[in-house]
Design a protein around this nucleic acid. Structure first.
Lengths: 207, 207
DNA sequence: TTGCTTAATGACCGGTCAGTCAGTACGCTT
DNA sequence: AAGCGTACTGACTGACCGGTCATTAAGCAA
């Protein structure tokens, strides 16, 4: 057992940040922001508490990094779905909604990141501002474009939802909130719920 | 200045609990659950910290009392609106939705109680269970009844939303979440949003 | 092998706050 | 007026935890 083969400390400046973020995501997901302990995050990342502070100035900065790495990339994939040229507007909207459920609701870690954003977002105006620019307003633009194309082709009617496309997605938000609040009492059956969502939206938009 | 006229301490066993709950509601609404300090609640109620613990065993018990007194009574009023015999199902549904916005979203204290329930509800399974029984499942029953009447009269079509009436209300939930998360970046114009909600729902239900 | 830079450590600090309890005084009873 | 039960007080305790920094050792260079 030479020390060189199995040293107690290892110097891996490049690998640490992503390992710490991964551990942080897990702990934030389980404990929420306030409940997450830096020491627990450090333990799971296999480093000491002080090491976390070599790479992230504060607990908030660490949370912000966890959100950036996990939630932001989702939008790009949604956007490409909304642009499938062969499909009708209704088909593309259906595909986007399906994807939102798969990516955000049925992935526990991401769902809980959403939950933390919802729950504690008001304490992180910087983070919510970033999130709004990077995800929400992009998603709104995408939905508006999709709705306008549907109106132009006669698939959808002219509707006030064009000004508030987030309403189209609100049942998904409701599902996130339900899962985190009432699921232990009244579990939400995802497939029929998703069907009801799509049914209401497509019929609500039909001329 | 006799002591009898202006004593420093007063013994008012009956009045204390409701005064403490009122103070607690205000502080919880302003600071959230974790941020609320018992000492601050006591100060506003005009008592010492120890007095709070004479009437409520823990901070959680106090929060639970605040929620019970404020949120539960709302449902009764919604229910009576849904039973106006002269109105059509669509008119009654419209009235219920309007009332939800007025009672839950445009009343800041209630909205923030909702926010705390959403944010920290998973840490209070007892409270969310009570809330589910007292409010959510009642509201679901009411909506189901309303929808069925609409289907029977031919106003609404047979739709999977009958099984998931919460979808009908999900834009209101979205509004609560939006207000608490993004309102400082992109304020939500309530009236057109409410119009868009009603428009989508009524058209989504139309045969 | 020696020396040096710096990644990594973890004991410690300072501040916070829920909850306690020994003591105080209100106001009723006699 | 005196005695008494108890509503009320607030200083205190103990636990917690974010963030710091003097110390240690990895591992490269000479």
């Amino acid at each position: 057992m030479s020390e060189a083969e199995n040293p107690k400390r290892k110097r891996r400046k490049d690998a640490r940040p992503s390992e710490i973020v991964a551990a942080a995501l897990a702990v934030f997901a389980e404990q929420g922001f306030a409940g997450a302990k830096i020491e627990e995050i450090a333990r799971r990342a296999g480093v000491a508490k002080g090491t976390v502070y070599l790479y992230f100035a504060t607990k908030e900065a660490l949370f912000e990094a966890a959100v950036r790495e996990n939630i932001s990339p989702i939008f790009a994939r949604l956007d490409s779905l909304s642009r499938q040229p062969a499909a009708s507007a209704g088909e593309r909207l259906t595909a986007v909604i399906h994807r939102v459920y798969a990516e955000l609701i049925e992935n526990p870690a991401r769902r809980i990141i959403m939950q933390i954003l919802i729950a504690e977002g008001s304490r992180f105006p910087q983070l919510t501002a970033f999130y709004h620019v990077a995800v929400i307003s992009q998603a709104q633009k995408m939905l508006k474009r999709l709705l306008k194309q549907g109106v132009a082709s006669g698939e959808f009617r002219q509707t006030p939802a064009l000004k508030h496309p987030e309403i189209i997605m609100s049942p998904a938000m409701m599902a996130v909130v339900w899962k985190m609040t009432f699921d232990h009492i009244a579990p939400l059956a995802m497939k029929p719920y998703l069907q009801a969502h799509i049914d209401l939206v497509l019929n609500g938009l039909r001329p």
